[in-house]
């Protein structure tokens, strides 16, 4: 009996050990790819196998990074872009959820606007950029609007679908207690759709980056999008690559944070 028990715990230990080893190998290969990519980039640029003017090199990007860090312009522009993105995706998600709630509230309205939603969803929202800039002026508001508008329709559609899919028997329970439609929404529809709303938040982070960067391309006065356009215009591709890498890192961090938030909120 006791023998068997120690045996099982030993086997379990071995199993866990094998898991850790596998995990380490995965990490190892990931690091190898990372190093291989950047070192071959660096070498081929130095040996002029690729055009260093066009493709720059990691060391040049690093130097520029330090330089821009010291003169404060990187942080300032990153701050601008980050603020716009955060406001954009929160606004997009909130607005989409509110619209979804309106559609749920009035089935008639939802039937009427259905084809318009389909059209708006199919339309490339960034094409609205020039109009937004003229309407709201070339500054924060129009860029934030870009970040929001790109995600609002798809959020509306996804969240509305989830509102509709809530088991009607939950509403029946509430109605037996004489609940109003507003109470039904607050007690059943919204909390039941909470996981969906959080997961659209995750998708919207990515969408808002697109909207904001395109917005900054167009306004071209501040932000990482401006860095990219400016670098392109003066043929400083090191600046373009620097901006790209910074965006990649920050967008990933933001995504992870929202994922963390999701895990925390939906753990129950």
């Amino acid at each position: 009996m006791k023998q068997g028990k120690t045996n099982v715990s030993l086997l379990h230990k071995n199993y866990l050990h094998s898991l850790t080893i596998k995990k380490r190998w995965v990490r190892f290969y990931q690091i190898v790819i990372f190093l291989l990519f950047f070192s071959s980039w660096e070498i081929s640029s130095q040996k002029r196998w690729i055009d260093p003017l066009l493709f720059s090199s990691p060391s040049k990007i690093w130097d520029l990074f330090l330089e821009k860090l010291q003169d404060g312009s990187l942080m300032a522009n990153l701050g601008v872009t980050l603020t716009e993105t955060i406001f954009g995706f929160i606004l997009g998600t909130l607005l989409g959820t509110v619209l979804a709630a309106l559609l749920w509230w009035s089935p008639m309205l939802s039937k009427i606007v259905d084809p318009y939603l389909v059209i708006l969803n199919a339309m490339p929202k960034v094409a609205l950029g020039p109009i937004l800039i003229v309407a709201l002026g070339p500054g924060y508001p129009s860029i934030i609007a870009m970040g929001a508008i790109i995600s609002v329709i798809i959020t509306t559609i996804v969240v509305y679908t989830s509102f509709k899919e809530v088991d009607p028997n939950y509403l029946k329970v509430l109605q037996t207690f004489g609940a109003t439609r507003l109470q039904c929404f607050k007690e059943a529809i919204l909390p039941a759709s909470f996981p969906t709303i959080i997961s659209t938040l995750k998708v919207n982070v990515g969408l808002s980056w697109v909207g904001v960067i395109v917005g900054e391309f167009l306004v071209s006065s501040r932000g990482l999008g401006y860095f990219i356009i400016y670098g392109f215009q003066v043929f400083n591709f090191t600046l373009v690559f620097l901006s790209l890498l910074v965006i990649a890192v920050v967008a990933t961090i933001m995504y992870q944070l929202v994922e963390l938030l999701e895990k925390k909120l939906i753990k129950e």
Partner: peptide, 26 residues
């Protein structure tokens, strides 16, 4: 009072919140 075919307790509410929902709504 009407108890449906399944319990339909709200999964995101604690038992206490669940049993008090009728009183709260009214």
């Amino acid at each position: 009072g009407y108890m449906l075919q399944q319990d339909y307790l709200f999964p995101w509410k604690t038992i206490e919140e669940n049993i008090l929902i009728g009183l709260k709504l009214s």
